[in-house]
Design a protein around this nucleic acid. Sequence first.
DNA 1: TGCAAGTCAATACC
DNA 2: GGTATTGACTTGCA
Length: 404
Amino acid sequence: PESPLSSAEESVNGLAGDPLASQSSSLKPLSEDPSGGESQPGTPLPLPGHSGLSIQEMVAMSPELDTYAITKKVKEVLTDNNLGQRLFGETILGLTQGSVSDLLARPKPWHKLSLKGREPFVRMQLWLQDPHSVEKLMDMKRLEKKAYMKRRLSSLSDGHSVEGVLSGPDYMQGSQSPGGQQQLKKARVVLGPEEKEALKKAYQQKPYPSPKTIEELASQLNLKTSTVINWFHNYRSRIRRELFIEEIQAAGGVGPGSEGGSPSLRGCKSGEGDSCDGTESEGTVETRQGLGIGLEDHRGACKDQGMEVESEAGASNNSPAQLDCTTSGLAGPGSSCGQSGLGIFSLTEASSTSSASSTNIPSSGPARNPRDNNLRKKKAANLNNIIHRLEKAASKEDPSEWEF
DNA sequence: TGCAAGTCAATACC
DNA sequence: GGTATTGACTTGCA
C-alpha cells in the first residue's frame, strides 16, 4: 500500500468477496503493514519519516491536527462526490457509519482525544492529502455496487432472498445468522420520553448516582439497573462532548459553531435532544453561578463539569477540573478554545464585573445575592489567573520551557 | 470497582 | 437509502 487509501484497496478485495466477511477485514487498522503508509511527496502532514510506521506510531508522532477543519473538509468532499459515510468509514477509517456520523458531526478537539481517538483524524488527514482519494473511493463504490449486483443476481437465480446481502449481518431476533444458526439477540431497549425525562431529572440532582439510587430508579422506571447505569455513562459522556463544542463557540474559533450553530445545539435549543440536557436545572444553578464560566446556556451540561469545579475551586488553583477546562485554550491554531486569546473563560472577566445578564452566564440568571457575586468574582479571578499562566505556557513551543 | 473514552449496531429520522 | 441518535459494550486506567 502506498497511500492512505491503501485500506480502501484492501477492502475492495474484501468487498469483491463476501461482504459480511469484508466488514471485519475492512475494519482492521489502516496501515498495520509496516511496509505501508508510504509518505506522499510534499505531504502537508508533518510526520517526519512516517514511511514504514504503523498508524499508531504515526498518530503518536502526529502534530496537533485541526479536527474541525478536517471533518469539515471531509464532509465537503463526501457530499460533493456523493460518497456515503458507510463506505468512507469502513474503508478509510475502519469505523461503522454511526461512528463516522458522530465523528464528523461532533469532532473533539485534538487535545481532548486519546491516542486511539486521534487515529481516525490522522486517517482523515492522510486521506485528504491523497490527490486520488476521491477517485479511489469512487472506484470502491462502483466495485461494491458491482459485487452487490452480482450477488443479487446469483441469489435470485438460486431462489434465495437477497435480504442482507449488502446491509451487513442481521442477527435480529429470530433471524438466521450466516452460519445458519438461530441467534437470539437482545432487542434494543428504547427508552420512552417519560423515562428519559425522569433520568434527566435524576441526573440533574445527582450526575453520579449511588448504586442505591440506581436501583431505585431502575425499579421506579421498570428498567434494568444496567440500563440505568449505561444511560448515566452515556449521558455524562455525551454532555461532556457537547461541552467541547460549546467551548469552541464560546471561544469564537473554528468549528461547527462558526458555521451557524453546532449540531449539538439543535438538541440543546430544542429542549428535546437527548444528546444534551434540555431541561432547567434548579438544583445546580448555584454551581454554575459560582463558576461564572462563559458557557452559553448549557444548563445540565455545565453542571457535570460545574460540580467538579465547584468542589475544587476553593481548594487549589490547579485543580484538575479547572485545568481540564482551561487547557482547552492551549491547543493552538485551529483548536477549540485557545484562539480568542482569552480561552473559554473569555467572558469571565465581564461576568465578574457586571451582571450575569450581560454575559454568557447560563439561564440561571444574575447572582441572587452579593455573597454569590463575591464568590463568583473570586472564582473568576482565580480562573483568569490560571488561564493567563496556561496561555503563557502555551506560547512556548518547547514543553521544557512551559511554566506551571 | 467505577469511570471515561471509543465504538458498534439497531433504529429513528429525513 | 443515507444520516443521526442512542443503548450497549469493550478497553484501559486509577
